[in-house]
Amino acid sequence: MISINIIEEAAFQTIRRGATVISDDVRGAFARAIEAELSPIAKKGLEDTYKSMGLAELRDKPACPDTGWPIFYIKMGNEAQIEGGFMALEEAVRNAVRRATKAGYLRATMKHPLTGFDPGDNIGPNIPDFTYSFVPGDQMEITYVAKGGGSECFGGTRQRVVAFADGMAGIKKFVIDSFIASTKAGAICPPNILGVGVGGTANVAANLAKEAACLRKIGSHHPEPQIAQMEEELTDAINSLGVGIMGSGGRTSVLAVNIEYAYTHIAGIVCATSSNCMVARRATTRVLANGETVIMNDPDWFGGR
């Protein structure tokens, strides 16, 4: 049985790491973008952002003050035993969010959508958000994502139903048009990690897009060649637009395009996009049945898809 105190501490440390330490794959993509950049303003922007990421880790402070919506993805071993059960697990994670907010690792960003009431601790109805998947074993993994407001609020998240008559051209047009429409003046903090969800009901497509944007490592490809090829084609096409860092012009506009799909209805193909900020923040911790914790570099959310 995994003790609930260990889960709360693991959740707290995962939030702290997620907010302050930028993953190697994201930093590697920045290093490549700096190398490739020709515009002096864009090159300096990329270099400054890269330097600041390093300093955030060194100083143990949030890499971006907009720590956004607190989102958790939990990969639960089928045989895992949680002290107090799943409700205790969620309460432990909420406690970790409260503590992380008080300690300044998270900004108190979540508020009531109508009254504007700010609880001051990022806790409220349906927030934080939890998504589960189930895998063999008696361990669990918790992934924290800080989903920034810039990439979410200014059109980086969109949806459209494409007719089968329009097929591949319709899907690709939706993706590139959505990106262009949301990136003017750097609103969604490009270069983004762009997630695309194809198929399923509207919520399934939107969830797949968000998971593709926030949980897939840069450099990973969908295992099916046709999807992997779409990812590469869209990455190249978007990077040929010249949007650049913060929309001021440059060669790198996306760090990756990641696509996930679900089977869909014969009547139409729901497509969704979700963009992650250039300062993409995520962290994963595995908690073993004996209470040991292991820091993971890759949420591997789609492993075994």
Binding site: V161, V162, A163, A165, D166, M168, A169, G170, K172, K173, I176, I180, K184, E233, L234, D236, A237, I238, S240, L241, G242, V243, G244, G247, S248, G249, G268
Partner: peptide
């Protein structure tokens, strides 16, 4: 930048195999 992106959009469509006269089937 917006002007440049607009000019590049057409080339990007071409690269992706989106016909110049493409119009969505209205659902």
């Amino acid at each position: 930048v917006t002007e440049q992106v607009e000019a590049n959009r057409k080339k990007a469509y071409e690269k992706l195999g989106i016909p110049a006269d493409f119009e969505y089937t209205r659902l």
